[in-house]
Simulated scan of single mutants.
Amino acid sequence: MDQKFVKRRQRGLAVLVASLILLIGAVIYIGVQISGGGETVADRDYQGSGNGVHQLVEIPEGSSVSQLGPELEERGIVKTDSAFQTAAANNPDAGSIQPGFYRLQGEMSAAAAVQALIDPANRVELLDIHGGSTLLDVNVVGGNSRPGIYSQISRVTCTEGSENCIAAEDLQNVGATADLATLGVPEWARDAVAARGEDPKRLEGLIVPGQYVVNPEMDAQEILTDLLTRSAQQFNDTGIVDRARALDLTPYELLTAASLVEREAPAGDFDKVARVILNRLEEPMRLEFDSTVN
């Protein structure tokens, strides 16, 4: 028999055998699925939007939603990480999910879990501290009150469904009495802050304005420690010690001056108000700003 014909016949037989193996495998798979002996959709995923038991989950800054899958599986929020990854990949809005804390439920379908992370209503509110904010509430013209930082933290932790509502009074007490090193107050500010005793305003100016993700499961001291530690790092990153030395001030005096400028100066007049403050400190004389009284 011609050698070329033999080789052609062998290749054809190999293709036929491979096709039969694939066909048999498909038949077996379908049969197993029908008989309930293999992994079904129900084996990989819960059904519905959850069991009503709320759980708090965090997407840390710098991480992606896909990294959350293993934790969700371990905590019983979704049934399998693979189902969650598939649901995230199939949802075009999954890429818009932001870092923060979210309230989910146990035993959610993977698609429902992804959708809950997209819904801003399930995200724990950010703590938004504006420039010039004070620790305590301030009464303003007209009889209105401007919430202080402690009241803002309380509002963020006391949202609907929260099991750890922290009162502003608890934060004020911690701020006035807790050990300064434990709270994360920078070393260059501790002596000046300690000299104020248990003044409820003694931490004034030590929390940098900005938006913060607050873990609503923390207690009052843990929240303040987190905010003060992060703020201290930001202050140190600006070179505040060297900048203060160049002005013949302590870092705490420079911080106080900067805080007063932020509260007192209209836009565009920061340099003028700063010069007034520095001149009065150099005299020395009382600053006599409204914010130093209120």
Rank of each mutant, 00 (worst) to 15 (best):
A195E: 04
D119T: 14
G69P: 09
D45Q: 02
E163S: 15
G197S: 03
T40Y: 00
V276Q: 12
Y29Q: 12
S151G: 09
Y102K: 02
G31W: 10
G37E: 10
L183F: 00
S96E: 13
N122Q: 04
I77H: 02
V213A: 11
A113G: 10
A178H: 10
T134E: 11
R280N: 07
A94W: 06
V138A: 07
K201L: 11
Q152W: 07
I166V: 15
V138K: 14
V138T: 14
Q98A: 04
Q152F: 03
D81A: 14
G161V: 12
G76I: 02
Q172G: 11
D219H: 08
A232C: 10
L136W: 03
D128C: 04
Y252V: 05
I207C: 05
L278P: 00
G48K: 10
Q233M: 10
G48A: 05
R196Y: 07
F101N: 02
A26W: 10
I277C: 00
E217A: 13
V140L: 10
V214W: 06
D45G: 00
P70I: 03
S231K: 05
V141R: 12
V156H: 00
Y102I: 03
G50N: 09
E163H: 08
M108D: 02
P147W: 04
P186M: 08
G52W: 11
A111F: 05
N236M: 08
P266I: 01
V15H: 06
A87W: 00
G12W: 07
I118L: 06
R196A: 13
W188R: 00
I118V: 12
F270L: 07
L20M: 11
R155P: 00
L104G: 01
R202C: 02
V32A: 14
D242M: 03
A194N: 13
Y212H: 11
S145M: 11
A178G: 09
G69E: 03
A14S: 11
D179G: 06
L13R: 14
Q221L: 04
E58R: 12
